[in-house]
């Protein structure tokens, strides 16, 4: 039972770190806003400069919330994939879901020259992008699920996912080849990833999907734990493995699709955060891991975003570059030190 209290302490600590990093994240940017003024804004008072209120409410807060949602969503997706495929290398990228989302965006951005003027409405552009991305993610996922129901072996599904990913990337290359420079530039910028473009309405949609995903995750905790013994043991424990697998795949595609749609393909978080969490918490129990991974994911993406802001400057680096620059060395260091990796 003392293990339980150790977990409680770790969770409280993580919660505090999440709040601190959120505050830090809100306060920095091209203009530094003191923490006291952030608190003032939150409790409904007017900060020292009234323009700060607009900055906080309309720009910084949505971006911070987005960072938390994206970080935890990608991390949870990665954890689910690693357990489902019992492979430490699995993640939303490996399954081809991210590539599918990119393909959707590529078709949307790059094919405008063929389809002409109907894309010039900016409203269509705002909503069309996430829509196209989700559709792309979903199509690849559907293909993976159909394949998954034909082949029983999870390793084969992993490879099929990789193949769909390559297919999507190849199609993107072909599309790029026939597009003009301006469109390619647009696509490349989307590919850098960005957390700051969401309006409050979009965040509400994001949040709604997140809540649906969390419900799915809650009912998946039991099958996920039994999957740790392998598929045959899970079956012998009364788990409907096919149904559970499909639920887990749908949650993952939903989360990855929406995240990629709104924020671009953000690399590394989905693979790295679950491993960092497992090494720190030293458990494979999903009742502990899922909330821990969610908290860690939020914190780490907030930190990455704070670095990307380049405090006191007007530049913002692409978030995708920061996550890899920050994440890759951490994972390499952890692996070299601990030498062993677990699902």
């Amino acid at each position: 039972m003392d293990k339980q209290t150790a977990y409680t302490k770790q969770f409280i600590l993580l919660g505090i770190i999440l709040i601190v990093t959120s505050m830090f994240n809100i306060s920095i940017g091209s203009i530094d806003i003191p923490l006291t003024d952030i608190f003032k804004t939150f409790i409904g008072q007017v900060p020292t400069k009234s323009s700060w209120e607009t900055i906080i409410i309309d720009y910084r807060l949505p971006k911070t919330i987005t960072a938390i949602l994206v970080g935890s969503g990608l991390s949870i997706s990665g954890l689910l994939m690693q357990t489902l495929f019992r492979n430490p290398l699995a993640g939303p990228f490996v399954l081809g879901i991210s590539s599918g989302a990119s393909l959707g965006v590529a078709v949307f951005l790059l094919s405008t020259s063929f389809l002409g003027g109907m894309f010039s409405f900016s409203a269509f552009l705002n909503w069309g992008l996430p829509f196209a991305s989700s559709i792309g993610a979903f199509i690849v996922l559907l293909a993976v699920i159909i394949a998954a129901n034909k082949v029983r072996n999870t390793m084969s599904i992993l490879i099929i996912g990789l193949m769909f990913g390559s297919l999507a990337s190849a199609l993107i290359s072909v599309l790029s080849y026939f597009s003009d420079a301006e469109q390619i530039k647009q696509f490349v910028f989307w590919g850098f990833g960005s957390l700051g473009n969401l309006t409050w309405n979009e965040i509400l949609i994001f949040l709604g999907i997140f809540i649906i995903a969390i419900l799915g995750i809650l009912i998946s905790i039991k099958p996920l734990n039994s999957f740790l013994l392998g598929e045959n043991y899970a079956k012998s424990l009364g788990i409907n493995t096919r149904k559970s697998r499909n639920i887990i795949l749908i949650i993952t595609s939903l989360l990855t699709g929406v995240i990629t749609a709104f924020c671009g393909p953000i690399a590394f978080i989905g693979l790295a955060v679950p491993h960092i969490t497992k090494l720190i918490f030293k458990t494979s129990n999903h009742k502990i891991l899922i909330p821990a991974v969610a908290l860690f994911g939020g914190i780490i993406l907030l930190l990455c975003d704070s670095i990307a802001q380049l405090p006191n400057s007007e530049f913002t680096l692409p978030i995708n570059a920061i996550t890899s620059l920050f994440g890759a060395p951490v994972v390499i260091w952890l692996l070299v030190r601990k030498k062993k990796i677990y699902i």
């Binding site: 019992r86 740790l228 013994l229 392998g230 045959n232 043991y233 012998s236 497992k278 030293k282 458990t283 494979s284 129990n285 062993k340 677990y342 699902i343």
Partner: peptide
């Protein structure tokens, strides 16, 4: 079963 357990921290 005869199959080995996947490597986890259980």
């Amino acid at each position: 079963l005869t199959e080995r357990l996947p490597e986890s921290q259980l």
